[in-house]
Design a protein around this nucleic acid. Structure first.
Lengths: 321, 321
DNA sequence: CACCGGTGTCGAAACGATTCAAACAGAATG
DNA sequence: CATTCTGTTTGAATCGTTTCGACACCGGTG
């Protein structure tokens, strides 16, 4: 691979001149510049990322960290991030899993967007302390190098519960997320608040994991205890899908025996039948807002923590009692 | 951020000794080594990726290039890649879009897995010529630095067509992929071969784009020409979903007026109703096989081009005529 | 005691770029 | 003709690692 040195030799100029020419500095004559660029093209020259970021201490790359590469959930989010970042002159790469933490630590990126519970709060604060710029989407963290863009979980969960209650449901199962999840905690809190306000509602919490399998397990339990129509609020759509999967193999019927609402409005929710009621928000906007915040931090501009608003999606999976 | 130099100063040893200690070289005394490691921990030392890869000319990172971050299709594929690569001591990052080509060019990765039509064949051959190691999943390319792992498109397309024909369908629309797509070309070729073998089949090709919108357009055309039950082979599931979307707004019925089969068996296909008949293959295996090949190339071991086998998934979207 | 081999440590070069400050050439000025 | 200025080019240092070859030290050997 040709380096700047090869170009310099071939052009009979110094390395620094080549560098200036390549970077379009006005210092070098148009003629020299043209000659150097021609030679660069001829030699198939591409700058070496490692060398450049070693010297400049920036890579113009942003890392997005997700818990996994699965499914419809992250597509829009990433698209939102990508669009904004490209516009600001940055590239986006996506990483997943604890093994990839090193990529963050080793300063491969100019900043990172985090929606990944495999990072602990302490880890992230530690990274921030070492100078890494972060935007977190799944927790609240206060540090000058960290900003958070969060969903309005409480509004969403209240919306969902009120929807069920307004339609006359009085026995409501709530399938929760994993212990440590900030989103789950927030949603649970709002559920409890809403239930407290209406005296005659029976609310039963079932621990889940935000995955399909958790929804299946919960479905199993609900089916076993079944004694007449019930409502279920799955704290995310994935678990709702899991519950559909399980219930479809019993003689219970979704939208009739079991009235269900999810949270997230993932792509699948629109296609399953009966269509899943859920809480919607713009994943694309979430991604683009988070990216904007990150760039602001990197550029040293002031930032405010932002919030993403949510709306209720009514559908046939929930009917009046 | 602490560097190796800071550690050296604090430990009162030379830079090289620190480097050896950090890399677990046997040259340095256990005692010195322990002291250095303690100081490194204390200073929150993390090696600098840029510096290391500049010197070592390797990053232990593999890039996966996809056309977009969307949907259920890539999840399993990436999981397959990730699993294998981790095991071999490499990390995986995912890139998308033409802007990200530079990441490949700038030698950020030790190798790349390519399933992305935004790269031209010439570009890839050029990269290979410059020393980049590639495995392509969406084309055939012959170069010592490139390996390909391809689907058995022809078998799949034949399987699909024969399924329709065996069930008595004689008028078959085929919705194709974009012009340049290798997969589309292969599938079309097999379709034509199959049709030639059975004299009384009428086969009408409609250009598509492998996206949902292409399926919608094709659905519109088919609905407009509708004059009794027909079969449709969408060359991928995405387009089939698009066709469902369109047809659901007409008074035609999938699985009755329009019998449809797709290709890829994406996650959604299992959930739409009537369930979509399709061609299945293990995306996870595809990813892991491709990764294995890539590592072999990097390590200079001999490789053979491999093929992924496919199977037919029968479902209610296709009924006998 | 001179010599040798092995161990542990160090200095310096190198990787490929950027960038500061110095050097230089040539034109313009006094 | 000496001086200053402007504009272009250059040398050298630097970023944070790795790694080669040199070197000093030590115990053992002949």
């Amino acid at each position: 691979m040709a380096s700047i040195k090869d170009i310099a030799k071939k052009a009979g100029v110094s390395i620094s001149t080549v560098s200036y020419a390549l970077n379009g500095s006005s210092k070098v004559t148009d003629e020299t510049c043209a000659r150097i660029l021609a030679i660069a093209k001829e030699l198939n020259y591409v700058p070496n990322a490692a060398a450049r970021s070693l010297k400049k201490k920036e890579s113009k790359i942003i890392g997005a960290f997700l818990p996994d590469f699965s499914g419809g959930f992250y597509g829009d989010l990433l698209q939102g991030m990508k669009g904004t970042l490209i516009q600001k002159g940055y590239d986006l790469v996506v990483c997943s899993g604890p093994q990839s933490h090193r990529l963050l630590a080793e300063k491969l990126f100019d900043g990172a967007l985090i929606l990944d519970h495999t990072f602990s709060d302490e880890q992230l604060l530690n990274f921030a302390e070492l100078g890494h710029r972060l935007v977190v989407l799944d927790r609240e963290l206060n540090h000058p190098n960290i900003n958070h863009v969060l969903l309005d979980n409480k509004a969403g969960a209240s919306l969902a519960m009120e929807y069920l209650i307004d339609l006359g449901h009085r026995k409501i199962y709530v399938v929760t997320g994993p212990e440590g999840s900030y989103d789950s905690k927030q949603r649970i809190a709002a559920v409890r608040q809403t239930v407290e306000r209406s005296s005659d509602v029976e609310c039963i919490e079932i621990p889940g994991d935000f995955n399909r399998s958790g929804g299946e397990r919960a479905g199993k339990q609900i089916a076993a205890e079944f004694a007449g129509p019930v409502a279920v609020f799955c704290l995310n759509d994935e678990m709702a899908i899991g519950m559909y999967d399980y219930i479809s193999e019993t003689d219970l019927e979704m939208g009739k025996d079991i009235h269900i609402i999810g949270f997230d409005n993932i792509e699948l929710s629109e296609y399953i039948r009966p269509r899943l009621a859920t809480i919607d928000y713009s994943k694309k906007k979430w991604g683009s807002l988070a990216s904007e915040q990150l760039i602001k931090i990197i550029e040293g501009k002031p930032v405010e923590n932002e919030r993403i608003y949510v709306t209720l999606v009514k559908a046939e999976s929930v009917k009046p009692v």
